[in-house]
Simulated scan of single mutants.
Amino acid sequence: MILTILASVLVVPAGQTFECTPTHVWDGDGPVWCAEGPRVRVSGVAAREADGSCRPGHPCPDADPQDARDYLVRLVGRPIGKSPHGHILVEGPTLTCVSTGSAGGSRTGAWCASPLSGDLSCALVASGLVARWERYWGNHRCS
């Protein structure tokens, strides 16, 4: 696998499949920190920021940001603590992801599936806790 180093974090090139064993979750659309290095921004969705705000130009769901974050935590595993910076520490099975490329900064955008919950993007949208972001959803299909 070819990886690019960006700010000391691995960004997986678009189109590449990679594994992500989740260790931290920040908010309802990520990033999900992977033991293997990447920080995954869940593709095709938008959640409120941790402080409840929405960034200009982003879809803005009505849901509480902590509810969205906690749901993503449950989709990838189980909470085991909280970091000093506010990330929820998690443990769960390895996800299989397909990169959509850089999601800004040191984050890899990706469509990921968990053996626990299936397609993360589809499960998040179905929950109503995040908004489907048409600009990035593209031809993605939920089964």
Results as ranks from 00 to 15, higher is better:
Ile5Met: 11
Leu6Glu: 10
Ala7His: 07
Val11Leu: 05
Gln16Arg: 12
Thr17Ser: 13
Glu19Thr: 11
Thr23Val: 15
His24Phe: 14
Asp27Glu: 14
Asp29Leu: 01
Pro31Asn: 14
Glu36Lys: 01
Arg39Thr: 03
Val40Met: 07
Val40Thr: 10
Ser43Pro: 04
Ala46Ile: 04
Ala46Phe: 03
Glu49Pro: 02
Gly57Asp: 15
His58Leu: 04
Cys60Phe: 08
Pro61Ala: 10
Pro65Lys: 02
Arg69Gly: 04
Tyr71Ser: 02
Arg74Pro: 01
Leu75Ile: 11
Leu75Met: 10
Leu75Pro: 12
Gly77Trp: 05
Pro79Glu: 14
Ile80Leu: 05
Ile80Ser: 05
Gly81Lys: 10
Lys82Ala: 12
Gly86Cys: 13
Gly86His: 11
His87Trp: 14
Val90Pro: 08
Val90His: 12
Glu91His: 06
Glu91Ala: 05
Cys97Met: 00
Cys97Ala: 02
Ser99Lys: 11
Ser99Trp: 05
Gly101Arg: 05
Ser102Pro: 07
Ala103Asn: 11
Gly104Lys: 09
Ser106His: 15
Arg107Ile: 00
Ala113Val: 07
Ser117Cys: 02
Ser117Leu: 00
Ser117Asn: 05
Ala123Val: 06
Ala126Lys: 14
Ser127Gly: 12
Leu129Pro: 08
Ala131Phe: 07
Arg132Ile: 00
Trp133Phe: 10
Trp137Phe: 01
Gly138Ala: 00
His140Lys: 08
